[in-house]
Computed example of a mutant assay.
Amino acid sequence: MRAILKIRHQLATLTTTSALLLAFGATRVEAAESAKDDDVLRAQLSLDASAFKPGVIDGKWGEFTGKALARYMQSQGKSAPDFGDKPPAEFDLPLDRERPTKTTYQFTDEDVKQIGEVPEDHKKQEELDRLRYEDLLELTAEKFHATREFLEEINPGFDWKNAKAGSEVQVPNVQMPFALQKPEDLKKQTEQAEKADKLKVEDDKPEAEQFKIQISVADKILELHQGGKLVGSYPITPGSDSLPAPVGEWYVKGFSWMPTFRWDEAMLQKGERSGDAYNLPPGPNNPVGILWMELNKDGAGIHGTEVPETIGRTTSHGCIRLSNWDVLDLGTKVRPGVHVSIQ
């Protein structure tokens, strides 16, 4: 009997030990995956702070993080590999490991003022003075260049529907949070310069400082070149099958910050202007976002968007679409007259 009890005890010990080893192994795997996710998030933040933009921040490796990293490396004179579906073992980036990847943000009264209903009906939208953010989750996602899903993930249990001024949330620690005041200020500056006939254009710069825009429809990337060198890139949505982006050589005729957008279904679907249209007011939920850069091609332009998480993953109506924070960055670098090559 004692021998049987001893065997049972040994089996129980082995089972417990095996379970502990499995749990320890699972914990190590989870820790490794968490560290890798943290590295991806840190890489996205580093690229977002650079001139090579990764698109929306979500802490996950993806197509546009890889394309941004490859172009950053190319700009440094290094080979630019196709990273594929998996992140590199080591990121060839100046990662600041002392800087936290997340920080706390407290909602303000000004944030709350930027919230308002956005009707689906364009006629009702036309009656509004602004197309505001629908809620504080949408505002926070744009301000910190993130997906709404990622914000919900890093704020488990937070009641976004009842968020108010004074509420605090965790957000990606981006270097330059997006703020609507910047395009509002640029709108005033541009209008004043136009009235005084002092609007500066790209050709006013020394030749070595002039930018050129190169757009790859296939890669869904807008590259910025200066002095023959690659100096920046942005993920884009470049047209659609029915209304593709206009391939060819163009230039930007002018900028319209915080624009009113003429919603014309016939123009959007067929490229033909009709009399049945609505003038949609400015705001972050305007269909062309916070900036319209008109090309010397009827109906075509480079612009922002009200749905940044769809950049590169859906289609547009023949234009080049960027997130609002990326088009703001681009619009503060280039000037009217900048050359645009779409291939």
Rank of each mutant, 00 (worst) to 15 (best):
T103P: 03
A163E: 03
E90K: 15
E153F: 12
R97M: 08
E149P: 06
P94F: 09
K86F: 13
L136Y: 02
K123W: 09
K161L: 15
F144A: 11
H122N: 06
A146M: 10
D121S: 08
E126Q: 14
D135A: 02
A163Q: 10
P87H: 12
K161E: 14
L95V: 15
T140N: 00
L95I: 15
E149I: 07
I115N: 11
E152H: 09
Q106Y: 01
I115S: 03
K102F: 11
K86I: 15
F158D: 00
A163I: 08
T101G: 14
L151S: 01
L131Q: 02
E149M: 11
E138N: 01
F91S: 02
F91A: 03
D129E: 13
F107N: 01
R99H: 13
E120D: 12
E98C: 05
Q114N: 10
V112N: 06
D135S: 02
E110S: 08
Q106M: 07
P88M: 11
E117P: 05
L131H: 02
V112Y: 07
T101L: 12
K86Y: 14
E120R: 05
P119W: 07
F150V: 12
P88Q: 08
L139G: 03
N155V: 06
K124W: 01
F144I: 04
P156W: 00
E117I: 03
R99L: 10
E110F: 09
D111A: 06
L137W: 03
N162V: 12
E134G: 03
R130S: 12
N162M: 15
D111K: 02
D109P: 06
E134Y: 12
E153Q: 14
D121M: 05
F91G: 01
N162I: 09
P87R: 06
Q106I: 07
K113F: 11
D159W: 12
D92R: 04
L139C: 02
P94I: 06
P94Y: 14
G157M: 04
Y133S: 06
E152M: 13
D92G: 08
A89T: 15
R148H: 14
D92H: 10
Q106T: 14
P100F: 11
E142S: 04
E127H: 00
T108C: 08
K143L: 03
T103G: 09
E90C: 11
Q106N: 09
R97P: 01
K102D: 13
F158Q: 01
T101E: 12
K123H: 02
T108F: 13
L137T: 00
K143I: 08
L136E: 00
I115K: 04
R97K: 13
L139M: 08
T103N: 09
R99A: 11
F107T: 03
E149T: 15
R132F: 06
E134C: 02
Y133K: 04
A146R: 07
L93S: 08
F158S: 00
L136V: 07
V118S: 02
L93C: 15
G157D: 01
D111C: 04
R148L: 12
D159E: 09
E142N: 09
D111E: 04
F144K: 08
T108H: 10
F91Y: 10
E134D: 09
R130T: 05
Q106H: 10
E127I: 00
K143G: 01
I115W: 10
E90T: 14
L137Q: 08
Q114Y: 08
L93W: 13
T104N: 04
T140R: 01
L128W: 03
